[in-house]
Nucleic acid binder design. Structure first.
Lengths: 147, 147
DNA sequence: TCATATGTAATATATGGAGTTACATATATG
DNA sequence: CATATATGTAACTCCATATATTACATATGA
C-alpha cells in the first residue's frame, strides 16, 4: 500500500490559504504541494462539503478559507478527507470460523483500537492554528540563522 | 494499500503448532490459514531466523515450534516478520523545504509516534499463551452452546 | 465572446502484500 | 540408490488504492 498523504496535504494547504489574501487556485495550490491541480480539487472537495473552504469557478476564482484555523483541528481535517484507513496492518479475516483465529483477532483488534483511540485523541487536541504558530517559530528561527 | 496480515497470520499459526504433535508442513499450515504454502514458508522464514521455529526438509519434515507460547509476545512476532509499516497515513515528504510543511510534519509525527508507542506497548504485553488461553475459553463456550 | 476556473470521469502509474508456478535442494524410506 | 516428500527461493501475476495525468464539461468575470 502506498501511504495516504491527504491529511498532511490538506493541513499544509489550509495553513497556506490562511496566510494568503484572496483565493488560491488549484494550480497555485498544486505548485505549493508539488502535486497536480486535479489532486487538489479532488481532495479539497471534502473540505468544501463540511464548510471549511469555498470554491469559486471562473475568472478570479479559486479556493478560500471560510473558518479560522483556531476552529479546525487535525481531526476535523482527517474526517473531512474521508477518514482514511489508519493502519497498514490488521486482520486477515474479520469473521473467521476458526476459534484460534477469532482469539487472535480479538487481541489484535484490542491493541489496534487502543492505538487508534489515542491517535484520534491526539489529532483532536491540535488545531491548525497551533501548527501555524509552530511555523512562525520555525520561520523566526530560520531568519535568525541566516544573519 | 492492501492490508498486511503477516502478524495475524503467524500468531494464528504458532498457536496451532503449539496444539499439534509433531511437525506441520507448509501445505497443512496453508490449509489452516486459507492461503498458499509458499506464503507460509516466506513468512515463517523470519520466525525461524529468530529461533521461534525450526524447519526440516524432506520426508516427515515440516515446521516445529521451539519455544513455549509463554515466551513469545505479539511484539516478538511483529519483529520477527520484519516490523511491517504500521500506519497507512503519513507524511507526503519527510524532509520538505517548506517551513509550513515542516510544522505539519512535526505535528503528524508527534501524533503518530505516540499512537505507535502505545501499540508497541500493547503488543509487548500480550503473549501467545494468553491468546491460546482465550481460545480455550471460546472453545468451552462453543461446546456449551452446542448442548 | 473568451480566457480562466472548477468539477469530474477515465486512465495510467507506483507500491507492496499475497497468490502461484517452477525448480533446486535436502532427506526419510524401501 | 531411487523415489516420494519437504523446504528454499526466484520469478512472475494479481489486487487494492493513493496519486498523477489527460480530457472535457461547466461556470464566470472581463
Amino acid at each position: 500500500m502506498q501511504l495516504d498523504g491527504r491529511l498532511s496535504r490538506m493541513m499544509h494547504l489550509l495553513i497556506h490559504m490562511d496566510r494568503a489574501n484572496g483565493p488560491i487556485t488549484s494550480g497555485e495550490a498544486a505548485e505549493m504541494l508539488h502535486t497536480n491541480p486535479v489532486v487538489i480539487r479532488r481532495t479539497m472537495a471534502g473540505l468544501r462539503d463540511v464548510g471549511f473552504v469555498r470554491s469559486i469557478k471562473g475568472h478570479a476564482g479559486g479556493w478560500t478559507l471560510l473558518k479560522p484555523l483556531e476552529s479546525i483541528s487535525m481531526l476535523d481535517v482527517y474526517k473531512a478527507v474521508g477518514q482514511p484507513r489508519i493502519f497498514a496492518i490488521g486482520l486477515v479475516d474479520p469473521a473467521p470460523d476458526c476459534l484460534v483465529e477469532q482469539a487472535v483477532n480479538a487481541s489484535m483488534t484490542s491493541a489496534l483500537e487502543k492505538a487508534e483511540a489515542l491517535l484520534i485523541a491526539q489529532l483532536g487536541e491540535v488545531t491548525l492554528a497551533a501548527i501555524a504558530k509552530d511555523f512562525d517559530r520555525r520561520f523566526s528561527a530560520s531568519c535568525a540563522n541566516s544573519l
